[in-house]
Design a protein around this nucleic acid. Structure first.
Length: 207
DNA sequence: TATGAGATCCGCT
DNA sequence: GCGGATCTCATAA
C-alpha cells in the first residue's frame, strides 16, 4: 500500500505544529512497524538545538531538502537517530522520532534487542532506530516511495508538550510532544555535562 | 527505584 | 581535537 497521499500536506507548516500530527503515525521498514508516541520538533538555523543551527553542511543537507525524507545522524559514538524532514524545500526543519510502540514484526524487533522488554524495544530515539533496523545509510530515503515508509494515522485527541531532551541550547522550548498514558514514553532527562575520557599521558593503559 | 559514570565514532572547527 | 538530539550497567537506598 502506498503511503498516504496527504503526507506532503501533513508535513506542511512549522515543525512545532507538524510534530504532534505525527503522533500515532506508523513507520514501517520491512517486517517491522512502529507507531509513534513521542516526537521532538527542530526548526532551522534559528533553533540553537538544531543540527542546522550553524548552517548547511554535508551532514545536514537532507534537512534542507524536500519534506517527507528521512534524516539520519550518528551520535555518541554508537547510536543512530532518525528525523522526518518537514517544511518546504530550503527550510531546514525536521521532527525527531523519539519513541514508539512496535505494532508489527515484534519477533524481528525482539531479535535485534535480546533481553529487552517489549516496552523498551522502541523507547528512545536510538532504540527506535535499532528496532526498525534504520542505519546511517538510510539517510535521504523518500518516505513515500522508499524502503522505509511513513503511514499517516489519526493523531490522539490529546497530547502533552514539554522541554526537549538532552539539549544544551534552547532547552526552554516545549517542543517535545508525546501521547499521555503511553508506556513507551520516556521520562525527561536534562542535558548532562559529560566527563571527558580520563587519558593519562604517557602512562601504560594496561595497569 | 534512582542516580552516576563509561562507552565509542562521526562531523565540524 | 572536541563535543554530541543516548543507552546501558553498576551501585546505593
Amino acid at each position: 500500500m502506498s503511503a498516504s497521499p496527504d503526507l506532503g500536506e501533513l508535513l506542511r507548516g512549522p515543525a512545532e505544529e507538524v510534530a504532534p500530527r505525527l503522533l500515532n503515525a506508523v513507520v514501517r521498514h520491512g517486517d517491522v512497524a512502529v507507531r509513534l508516541t513521542e516526537v521532538e520538533a527542530y526548526a532551522g538555523p534559528a533553533d540553537p538545538g538544531s543540527h542546522a543551527f550553524r548552517g548547511r553542511t554535508a551532514r545536514n543537507e537532507v534537512m534542507f531538502g524536500p519534506p517527507g525524507h528521512l534524516y539520519c545522524y550518528f551520535t555518541y559514538g554508537m547510536h543512530v537517530c532518525a528525523n522526518v524532514v518537514t517544511g518546504p524545500e530550503g527550510t531546514a526543519s525536521a521532527v525527531l522520532l523519539r519513541a514508539g510502540e512496535v505494532v508489527d514484526g515484534l519477533e524481528v524487533a525482539r531479535s535485534r534487542r535480546p533481553g529487552s522488554s517489549d516496552r523498551d524495544l522502541a523507547r528512545g530515539p536510538a532504540r527506535l532506530c535499532r528496532a526498525l533496523g534504520i542505519e546511517l545509510s538510510h539517510g535521504g530515503t523518500d518516505l513515500r516511495t522508499g524502503e522505509i515508509t511513513l503511514e499517516v494515522g489519526t493523531p490522539p485527541a490529546r497530547w502533552e508538550a514539554g522541554p526537549r531532551v538532552g539539549l544544551r541550547g534552547a532547552p526552554d522550548r516545549p517542543w517535545r510532544f508525546w501521547t499521555p498514558g503511553e508506556r513507551s514514553v520516556s521520562a525527561y532527562r536534562a542535558a548532562v555535562t559529560r566527563v571527558r575520557r580520563p587519558r593519562v599521558d604517557g602512562a601504560d593503559p594496561t595497569t
